[in-house]
Nucleic acid binder design. Structure first.
Length: 469
RNA sequence: GGCGGGGUAGCCAAGUGGUAAGGCAGGGCUCUGCAAAAGCUCCAUUCGUCGGUUCGAUUCCGUCCCCCGCCUCCA
């Protein structure tokens, strides 16, 4: 069975065939965070999407090198550093740490490599030098180095691979006016920004004088440095298609020699944005959430992850609190079933290959997570039926758990069981004694008391089961 | 204005040229001391609009309406 993905480059769903002749190694690059603030759940939708791709490639037994950059030098960062007492490093490391903690909480596997832009200034300069030497970049009178789209196109290269560009028809809004540099053409973009007083102590030496890298160049430099001039997969949010990814292509294909049919990146994948209650997330609308905002409201990261994994990555997704509550219920159903299976299981199980291949068939189809969840929930219902009519054996339960483990290696919905505190446990025991004595008034009192503390009791034929509400 | 993605039950969300998965919420029943959990069951004659093609369209074509994203340092 082969994986098919929507390749932005081709604008259609195509078979995923890695560059590696053995079909084993996969180089994957994801545009990571700019660490100037806590990331919001919209950002995390993209990272949960890239994690799904990463995990599924692992599941398919590809040998994946997953690179995610950390952008730790950028206009907003420099401004904030200047306005505060911290150093660039101190400031960015703080948010990098927070970002990685959030990623971990959301069940995202750590990328193989997490290069920081500031630690790749050498390769960045090397790459810009290549572009200047090849005549597709120039230093302007302001000292900055720009990429010339005209010269690039003149070399027979194609600018506008990911989006259909029509510069004449484009709206050049306020954002261009902000960018007052001495460029030859409006479409040109900065590779190296000459040092200005506002940059403070944030600068590096280069053949073009002191300055700092432009936005796009870091990704070209780090990806080609770590994955080679051609690699398999590049992912990011849909807003990055243009200009960021388009410029990455231009910088890389402008700098390196590519043979016929060779490209910087073979497959591009873009995740759609998250809306909140039907609207774009904006601070002034009050619908701007970080992961920490949600966890402080009592939501669990796994619930957020589940919610994000309930919609196709190329569909715009509407985040709602109703949806988040629904995610909790759905996960509760999974947890309960798995808990019961765990109580019965013994020995090493074997995953049910029919279920796994049905699951795989769905994900092979450009990550049809909804279809995959259908397979999971149909399977859960069957397991519950067996549990209800007591036809589950220690072996079948173990097999079911092995099946789940395989599924969960892709979905990564952690099920951390809260340990039952001793005082809760003793209350539960007291209630059970009251029940035995048919003192239902007392036992219901205790149940209410437990509920008030966030614990629920389920009476089963095997005795009471205490779990977190 | 240019480019792109959508409109499927109360909500979220798959899907197919042959008569609508799954999840959440809701109703009923079984089980239970009562619950909870679970099971069974009900819940879109209908897939934004209007036309067309077809034996048959939600699925193909065209029209229109609406929503959303990008258009130069935002995932």
């Amino acid at each position: 069975m082969g994986l098919k993905i929507f390749n932005t480059l081709e604008r259609e769903v195509v078979e995923f065939v890695p560059l590696d002749p053995a079909g084993k190694k996969v180089g994957m690059y994801c545009c990571g965070p700019t660490v100037y603030d806590f990331a919001h759940i919209g950002n995390f939708r993209t990272f949960v999407f890239t994690d799904l791709v990463r995990r599924y490639l692992d599941f398919k037994e590809f040998d994946v090198t997953h690179v995610m950059n950390i952008t730790d030098v950028e206009d907003k960062i420099i401004r904030t550093v200047r306005e505060s007492d911290t150093s660039l490093k101190e400031f960015t490391r703080r948010f990098e740490k927070a970002f990685l903690e959030d990623m971990d909480a959301l069940g995202c596997k750590a990328p193989t490599k997490k290069p920081r832009a500031t630690e790749y200034i050498g390769p960045i300069i090397k790459l810009i030098k290549k572009l200047v030497d090849r005549g597709v970049a120039y230093q302007a009178s302001d000292g900055s180095v720009y990429f010339s789209i005209e010269k690039y196109r003149g070399c027979g290269c194609h600018y506008g691979q990911l989006v259909n560009l029509n510069f004449g028809e484009m709206r050049t809004g306020e954002r261009v006016a902000d960018d007052e540099y001495e460029k030859e053409s409006l479409a040109d973009f900065a590779l190296w920004k000459a040092r200005v007083p506002e940059d403070g102590e944030v600068f590096w030496k280069s053949p073009w004088g002191e300055g700092r890298p432009g936005w796009h160049i870091e990704c070209s430099a780090m990806s080609t440095e770590l994955l080679g001039k051609s690699f398999d997969l590049h992912l990011g949010g849909e807003d990055l298609k243009f200009p960021h990814h388009e410029d990455e292509i231009a910088q890389s294909e402008g700098a390196f020699e590519y043979g016929d049919g060779e490209h910087f990146v073979k497959f591009w994948m873009h995740g759609s944005h998250l809306l909140v209650e039907g609207k774009k997330m904006q601070k002034r609308l009050g619908n701007f959430f970080t992961l920490r905002d949600l966890t402080s409201k009592g939501y669990q990261p796994r619930e957020i992850r589940y919610l994000m994994l309930s919609a196709h990555y190329r569909e715009q997704f509407n985040f709602t609190f109703d949806g988040l509550d629904g995610a909790r219920s759905a996960l509760g159903r999974l947890d309960d079933c798995l808990l019961k299976l765990g109580e019965t299981a013994a020995g090493e199980g074997t995953a049910d290959s029919d279920v796994i291949s049905a699951f795989e068939r769905e994900l092979d189809d450009d990550f049809n997570v909804a279809g995959a969840w259908r397979v999971v929930f149909d399977w859960i219902r069957d397991r519950n039926k067996e549990l209800a009519d007591e036809s589950v054996t220690a072996e079948s339960a173990a097999n079911a758990l092995a099946t789940w483990e395989k599924i969960n290696s892709v979905f990564g919905i952690e099920n951390v069981e809260a340990p039952v505190p001793p005082e809760i446990q003793s209350l539960a025991e007291e209630r059970q004694a009251a029940r035995k004595a048919k003192d239902f008034q007392r036992s219901d009192e205790i149940r209410d008391q437990l509920a008030a503390q966030g614990w629920v009791i389920e009476d089963t034929p095997k005795g009471p089961r205490v779990k977190k509400a």
